[in-house]
C-alpha cells in the first residue's frame, strides 16, 4: 500500500477514530483501518488487552485474526493501525517503535490532551529488515 506520499482519511473514518478515543477516556484505544485499492474504507475497533491500558495498547489477538479474515472476505487490506495517547503527544514513543511490525501500514496516533483531537500519521519501518526502526511522518489529509 503506497502511503509514502500521504494518508487520506474519509471524514467518517477520522470521526470514528476520534469517537473511539473519546469513549476510551483515560485509556488507550486501538483498532485498524481497512482499505481497498489504497484508500481507507472503514474502522475496525478492537479491544485493548494490555495489562496497563492507560499507557500501553495491545490489540486482542483474536480480534486481530477476525479482522484479517473479515478484510480478506471483503476484498480489503490493512490500511492503518491506530491508537490514542490520552495525555501525551500523538507521536510514536520508543515502545510504539519497538512494537511496530507492520511497515506497509500507516500508524495513526490521536491525542486528546488539548481537548480538541490531534491526529498524525507515521510510517514505522526497518530498512534493511531487522535494522533499527525509523519513524517517518506522512501527511494526513481529509478526503
Amino acid at each position: 500500500m503506497a502511503i509514502a506520499d500521504g494518508v487520506r482519511l474519509p471524514a467518517s473514518v477520522r470521526d470514528e477514530i476520534v469517537a473511539h478515543a473519546r469513549e476510551a477516556g483515560g485509556v488507550e484505544c486501538c483498532g485498524l483501518v481497512a482499505g481497498r485499492d489504497g484508500a481507507a474504507t472503514r474502522v475496525i475497533r478492537c479491544a485493548n488487552v494490555a495489562a496497563t491500558p492507560a499507557v500501553r495498547y495491545r490489540i486482542d489477538p483474536r480480534e486481530q485474526l477476525a479482522a484479517f479474515r473479515a478484510m480478506d472476505g471483503a476484498g480489503e487490506q490493512l490500511f492503518a493501525i491506530y491508537h490514542s495517547h490520552p495525555a501525551t503527544t500523538p507521536y510514536p514513543s520508543s515502545t510504539d517503535r519497538a512494537e511496530a511490525f507492520y511497515p506497509d501500514a500507516a500508524y495513526i496516533l490521536v491525542s486528546l490532551r488539548a481537548g480538541a483531537p490531534e491526529m498524525r500519521a507515521f510510517r514505522i519501518s526497518s530498512d534493511p529488515p531487522g535494522s533499527e526502526k525509523t519513524v517517518r511522518e506522512v501527511a494526513l489529509s481529509a478526503g
Partner: peptide
C-alpha cells in the same frame, strides 16, 4: 486454534489447515 494453547511447536497441523503467523499490534506511550 491458538498454537500456544495447542502444544506450541508440537501443535498438530491438519493437511487442509491455514496457518496464520501474526505479529502483535501493540505499543503505548510508555
Amino acid at each position: 486454534a491458538d498454537a500456544r494453547q495447542s502444544g506450541g511447536l508440537d501443535a498438530p497441523v491438519p493437511a487442509d489447515a491455514e496457518v496464520m503467523v501474526i505479529p502483535a499490534m501493540a505499543g503505548g506511550w510508555r
